[in-house]
Write a protein that binds this DNA or RNA. Structure first.
Lengths: 121, 121
DNA sequence: CCGTATCCTATATGATACTG
DNA sequence: CAGTATCATATAGGATACGG
């Protein structure tokens, strides 16, 4: 986005986006979809490096359990953000990657990262 | 941000941001801070219109209870994202608005809204 | 009008053990 | 290796009533 916008210009731009023809809000359902302690982190990790295997993902998400990771991945797959590919070799393994829909979340992380750099570090 | 970037260029840019001198991730703590069923929605509503009073906010956040809204607002205030101003007139009221730190979250919502428009509507 | 106090419930997450 | 099954727990959020 154009970084020279003032806050008010920016807000107006966002507001105009929000007033979709049907009057629906395009933010709420996205926020809904990304809810949970780990989901954003999982997508984020896959943004940085993909594909990742179940075990690799688990190691990066320090503290997550099998159950929770498994559930989160299934939901992300159902929402079409993550692609799961199973390899029935020896030893068997599974690779997770982002779909195009999932990759398109990257601008969101970019915005988050910039905010974090400004206000946390 | 520049919208002509390819995904790979974009990812590289994000990755370079992520590798801060200390090696800390600027995304994780932000995601942490914004967690909860209502927080993003509250900030989002204040982005669109501010100031908002407790009751107005409650009406917009359909279904939220006093307790939950109160807790969320206090935490947002503690994190320096929201400013609370109390007017001891008759009738008394309180106005909530965004701090500069909170307003700077707007690019994040912009990114979310764009994604939502592309994939939901 | 803007909350807090209290209690309650649901949902998300965690631990451990075990299987295709 | 990548999970599932089972059970346990923590935390967030909800309902109601009341107070500054």
């Amino acid at each position: 986005m154009d970084e020279t916008l003032t806050y008010d210009e920016f807000r107006e731009k966002v507001s105009s986006i929000i007033l979709t023809p049907g009057g629906n809000c395009p933010v709420t359902p996205v926020v809904q979809m990304l809810q949970g302690k780990w989901k954003l982190q999982i997508i984020y990790d896959l943004c940085i490096k993909e594909p990742l295997r179940f075990g690799e993902l688990k190691k990066r998400l320090d503290g997550i359990t099998n159950t929770t990771l498994s559930n989160a991945l299934r939901e992300l797959e159902e929402d079409g953000l993550v692609h799961r590919e199973q390899f029935n070799e020896i030893p068997p393994h599974v690779e997770y990657s982002l779909t195009e829909k999932g990759r398109d979340l990257l601008p969101i992380f970019y915005a988050i990262a910039k905010w974090g750099l400004k206000y946390i570090f």
